[in-house]
C-alpha cells in the first residue's frame, strides 16, 4: 500500500544515521537551517508568539543533536472554524491568485494564495519524485479512530445507566448543549475543530516540518482523512502525508518537507530583491506564513508585525 513511502522513510532514516546534522549555515543559499539556526529561530518564535512552546516529547524519541528541553515546538488547542475547501472557493470567487510563483516581487506575501510547486531543481534537495504517494493509499493508512467498523471492539456504553442525580441541575453551572441535544445552539458557544500544530526539525531535508493533530467539535481525536479537509486542496492529496511523529505517540498528518527548502529559498530571494536582508532568527515566521497557504483555516499564531530583517537599501 504505502510501500514507496515506507522505502523512502527507511532510506531517509539511513541517511540521517550516517550523515551529521548540518552545522554550517546555508540559510540564504539553500533556504535550509542548521541545528543551531533552528533553535535560534525557535527561541525567537516562542518569545514573540508565546502560544508556542518548546517541548521535550517522548524520552526514547529524543534526538541527541537537539537540547533535551528543545526537541520540537508546539501550539495546542488552535481553533479551526471553517474547512479549507470552503475558503478556497470564496478566494477564487474573489479573484485571488497564486502569488508564490508570481514574478512580482512581493508576490509571496499573500497568505491564502495557493503556491504551486515550482520546478526548482536543486541537487542538494531531495526531490518529491522519489516519493510518489498515490492518492488513496496515504490517506487510508489509518481509518477511523472512533466507531467505524470496529464498533464491536468498543465497550458498549449505550446501556450505561447513571443515576439521574449524578449530573444535577445546578443553577450556577452553564448547561452544555450536549445535555439537551435537541435545543439549538443559543448559548454563545461556538463548537469548532481544534488543532495541535507542532514543528519538528527534519534532519534529512534540513528544514522545519509541520505536524497536525486534529480534534473534532466534541474534543475527540480527528481521523487523519478529516484532517485533510483543513488542508488546501492543492496539497491535501499530495504534500500532506500521515506518518509517525518524531517526538510524540501515534500517526499524525504532516506537510511533507521535500519542497520546503526550495520554497524558503524563493521567499528569501524575493526579500533580497526588495533590499531586505533576511535574518535567520525570523525563519520560522516566514516559514509559518508559507505554511498558512497550506492550512489556511487553522488559526495558529505567527505574528509578523515587525521587521523581517535589516533593510540594506
Amino acid at each position: 500500500m504505502v510501500l514507496k513511502q515506507k522505502f523512502h522513510e527507511a532510506f531517509k532514516g539511513t541517511v540521517e544515521r550516517i550523515t551529521n546534522p548540518r552545522t554550517v549555515s546555508a540559510f540564504k543559499a539553500k533556504g535550509v537551517l542548521s541545528i543551531n539556526e533552528f533553535i535560534l529561530a525557535g527561541d525567537n518564535l516562542v518569545s514573540k508568539c508565546p502560544t508556542w512552546s518548546w517541548e521535550s516529547g517522548e524520552p526514547r524519541k529524543r534526538k541527541p543533536y537537539l537540547p533535551a528541553d528543545k526537541q520540537f515546538l508546539i501550539t495546542r488547542n488552535v481553533p479551526c472554524l471553517r474547512r479549507a475547501a470552503s475558503v478556497e472557493e470564496e478566494y477564487e470567487a474573489a479573484g485571488g491568485e497564486i502569488l508564490l510563483d508570481n514574478e512580482d516581487d512581493d508576490g509571496w506575501l499573500a497568505t491564502h494564495g495557493k503556491p504551486k510547486e515550482s520546478k526548482i531543481d536543486d541537487e542538494n534537495l531531495p526531490s518529491m519524485d522519489t516519493l510518489e504517494i498515490s492518492k488513496k493509499n496515504t490517506i487510508q493508512s489509518i481509518s477511523s479512530y472512533i466507531g467505524g467498523e470496529d464498533e464491536e471492539d468498543i465497550p458498549d456504553i449505550s446501556e450505561f445507566e447513571e443515576p439521574d442525580n449524578l449530573i444535577e441541575t445546578d443553577p450556577a453551572t452553564l448547561q452544555s448543549t450536549y445535555l439537551v441535544a435537541h435545543e439549538p445552539d443559543d448559548d454563545n458557544i461556538v463548537r469548532t475543530r481544534t488543532y495541535d500544530v507542532s514543528i519538528t526539525y527534519d534532519q534529512y531535508y534540513q528544514t522545519p516540518r509541520v505536524w497536525l493533530t486534529g480534534y473534532d467539535e466534541s474534543r475527540m481525536l480527528l481521523q487523519p482523512e478529516l484532517v485533510l479537509e483543513d488542508v488546501s486542496q492543492d496539497h491535501a492529496r499530495k504534500t500532506v502525508t500521515v506518518e509517525d511523529h518524531p517526538h510524540l505517540s501515534g500517526k499524525h498528518a504532516s506537510v511533507h518537507p521535500c519542497r520546503h527548502g526550495a520554497v524558503m529559498k524563493k521567499i528569501i530571494d524575493v526579500l533580497l530583491l526588495r533590499g531586505v536582508e533576511p535574518e535567520v532568527d525570523k525563519y520560522l515566521f516566514l516559514f509559518l506564513k508559507f505554511i498558512a497557504s497550506v492550512i489556511p483555516t487553522i488559526e495558529y499564531d505567527y505574528t509578523l508585525d515587525f521587521d523581517l530583517g535589516s533593510s540594506s537599501s
Binding site: 477511523s144 479512530y145 471492539d153 468498543i154 456504553i157 449524578l166 475527540m220 500517526k251
Partner: peptide
Amino acid sequence: VVGWEHNKGGAKPNVISLAKA
C-alpha cells in the same frame, strides 16, 4: 459538590479506540 463532565450524549463516559494506531 458538582462537576462530572457533560460528554457527548450527556451523563456518559467517553470512549476512544486507538486500535488503528
